[in-house]
Amino acid sequence: MSKPSPSPPPSNFDLQAIRSECIRIIKADSRHFQIIIFLFLLPISLPLVFFQVFPIKTLISNLLYTLTIPILSLLGTGSTAYSVSHGFHGRQVKLSSSMKAAFTSFFPLLSTWLVTQLIISGIGLILGLAFFSLFKATQVLVFQVDYSSAYFILLCLAYIISLVFIVVYLQVNWIFAYAIVVVESSWGLEPLKRSQALVKGIKGVAFKVVLFLGFFCWLGIWSSMLRFVEPAGDAWKIGASFIQIVTVPAASYYPLFMFYNLVVNTVLYMNSKAVHGEFAGEHVSLLSDDDGEVAHVVSIV
């Protein structure tokens, strides 16, 4: 007697369905995730807030500040993605295993992060040179303008807007990269290519995740950059003070935003694998596409 074929994975899950799945995974082992947040992600907020309120600008403090946040972020990424991927399948994960995954995946995650930064920096440099060349060509061929002119300011705005669109597009395509590094033990450029293949068909959902959760994560990082800026003039000092009022709380909540961003990205990645039929022979939970509840599909053959 042949076994009944399983129901096909849904192809139109939305943010509500993803949220339901994330809540299920976190509630199933809430203490485990609380420990991860306490060990790796919560300490990130301490230097973010401390150096904003007390901007100590020495070589040692800058070095500690620059190294602490990326190291803790990558360790938190490894442990969270590993734990969520196991929780997705309904498996209990030991804290020791999660800690081990954090350290074993650190250098692969670091290599992938460096590749993404090199690509984005290269695109930013090329785009900047293109706009600067356009500005110089305008000076020579059309009319004389200086760096305080409205034309130069418009070119700078066009450069920033263009770069933002490119970065958002890349972030959507690379949304699964870090989860792929942890779960599939790949590194460097390969997770980026793999993510680009898996995100096909669900870019709308991925864009919403990048737009909402990614925005708050970047706000926390951006707030940390203010400590390197020297205010000049009363107007700038007032503006910088106003920005700090907004971004210091964002820095405080940055670990939680980062945690939920990692959970959502990993859950979305696991469901994308299911949609692409990569869970043959495994026990897997999938998202339902009717009412946002979680449907469990067992023993896919």
Rank of each mutant, 00 (worst) to 15 (best):
L110K: 05
Y253H: 13
F152S: 11
A280V: 08
S98W: 05
A137E: 09
L287M: 12
F88C: 09
E190D: 00
A232M: 03
D291R: 09
S272P: 03
P9N: 15
T138G: 14
Y82D: 02
I126E: 08
A17T: 11
L46T: 04
L154I: 13
V164L: 11
V164R: 12
L42Y: 08
V298A: 15
L134V: 14
I18E: 14
F50P: 01
F257P: 07
I56Q: 09
W174R: 06
T66D: 10
D14N: 14
L286V: 15
T104P: 04
P108K: 03
L110D: 08
A206R: 05
I71P: 04
V167Q: 11
L64K: 03
L189G: 01
I26W: 15
F50S: 06
K273W: 04
Y147W: 10
S105T: 06
N265M: 11
V284K: 11
E184W: 00
F143D: 12
E21A: 12
K27C: 14
H86D: 11
V183P: 04
A232G: 03
I119R: 06
L72K: 06
Y269E: 00
D146T: 02
G214E: 05
V142P: 07
H89M: 14
S149R: 05
F103G: 00
K203M: 00
S85W: 08
L118A: 12
M1G: 02
L189V: 03
L163M: 09
V267C: 08
V142R: 10
Q117E: 08
L198C: 03
I23G: 11
V164D: 10
F106W: 01
T104V: 09
S97E: 13
A28Y: 09
H89K: 15
V229T: 00
L287W: 01
S299F: 02
V209Q: 13
S133H: 11
L155E: 05
F131W: 01
K100F: 06
I161Q: 07
Q34Y: 15
E230Y: 03
Q139E: 12
F131P: 06
F54K: 02
I166P: 08
H296R: 14
E184V: 00
D291P: 04
V53Q: 00
S299N: 09
I69C: 03
F50T: 10
L157R: 08
T68G: 07
T116S: 13
K57D: 14
V168G: 02
N12S: 13
P10D: 14
F207L: 09
A206S: 10
Q117P: 01
I23K: 15
L59N: 13
L268N: 05
P249Y: 01
S299M: 10
I166M: 10
P10Y: 10
F215K: 04
A250Y: 07
I175G: 03
Q117D: 08
R194Q: 04
I35K: 15
L59A: 15
E293S: 14
Q196L: 01
Y254D: 05
D234S: 04
S121H: 07
A102H: 05
P70A: 00
L59S: 15
A232W: 00
